[in-house]
């Protein structure tokens, strides 16, 4: 299969004075640490809904095969940023962006980007589990069947692999044909993760994936995320700072549309360089 999003030349947009960046919003913390190459990179990335600017000149590298957490108060723009990485904002009237956003060096914002191919490479898990009203098996193979012609045996293999990867196989292997909506909330969310993994994405975006779940399900999803980071680049938006500190390698703190601080997670939580970050992570925000 060809991957047009990858092969397309990086499109220069009108504000193409992209590099070097006057990194005003980005303190030099963590820059010294040896970081893996960036899977997703943003330079002077800004986004709007209509006239309302939600994100202002974000410069951020999301390292490959690590977990990157986006934290910040509601309305700070972290979910919007996440939804730009797989272009989910396309369906929102009035949403637009400027600057550069790249996946392994290829542009993601241009009009010529094949959004379907992009979303196969960048999967997404949503805040509320959203399995389709179909069987467990049909949910897992939904994406794979869109993109490939597969024999029955291939499908069975995909189902087992994806469900094992999402740590759900043992719980559902005897009832793959039963409706996905009959699963518990935590199981549904792991099914949604399995569904996203089944198309072999490189990046997995997670938008508050545990906020609708009870503590036990949350723990199982967190454990799963830690396992998945060996194979996938994961970006997770969370309101839960303990969760961010437990599962992420790097953390980006957003406030009012700006990236305030981005560094290794232990550093950001123990010795933040910015006053706003310190106030937020210590719960003194106000």
């Amino acid at each position: 299969m060809t991957q047009p999003a990858e092969s397309a030349p990086p499109e220069r947009r009108d504000s193409s004075a992209v590099l070097p960046v006057a990194a005003s919003a980005m303190p030099p913390v963590g820059a010294a640490a040896p970081t893996p190459p960036a899977a997703v990179a943003m330079r002077r990335f800004s986004a709007w809904y209509g006239r309302h600017q939600v994100l202002q000149a974000i410069d951020l590298d999301i390292p490959e095969r690590q977990v990157c957490a986006f934290i910040g108060p509601s309305g700070c723009g972290k979910s919007t940023l996440l939804r730009w990485v797989n272009r989910m904002n396309d369906s929102i009237v009035g949403a637009r962006a400027d600057g550069t956003l790249t996946l392994h060096g290829s542009d993601l914002l241009g009009r010529t980007v094949d959004v379907v191919a992009l979303r196969r490479r960048v999967g997404m898990v949503f805040q509320k589990p959203n399995p389709f009203p179909k069987s467990i098996k049909e949910n897992v193979v939904f994406g794979a069947k869109l993109h490939y012609r597969l024999a029955r045996a291939d499908l069975d293999e995909i189902v087992e692999k994806a469900l094992r990867a999402a740590a759900l196989w043992d719980e559902v292997k005897d009832r793959l044909g039963s409706p996905a909506l009959g699963l518990s909330g935590g199981q549904q969310q792991r099914l949604c993760i399995a569904r996203a993994l089944a198309v072999d994405p490189e990046v997995l975006l997670m938008d508050e994936p545990c906020s609708a779940l009870d503590p036990r399900s949350t723990a199982s999803i967190e454990a799963l995320i830690r396992q998945l980071r060996t194979n996938y680049t994961i970006v997770i938006v969370t309101h839960n700072m303990q969760q961010a500190s437990r599962i992420s390698d790097t953390t980006a703190f957003f406030f009012e549309g700006r990236l305030v601080e981005n560094s290794a997670t232990d550093l950001l939580f123990t010795s933040p360089t910015q006053k706003q970050t310190e106030d937020y992570v210590s719960g003194r925000f106000g």
Binding site: M88, V116, G123, F126, N130, F132, G143, L146, H147, R195
Partner: peptide, 14 residues
């Protein structure tokens, strides 16, 4: 629910 449409689109369906 819109979430079902989003889930399908996010898997790369048209």
């Amino acid at each position: 629910p819109q979430s079902l449409r989003d889930g399908s689109l996010a898997l790369g369906s048209t």
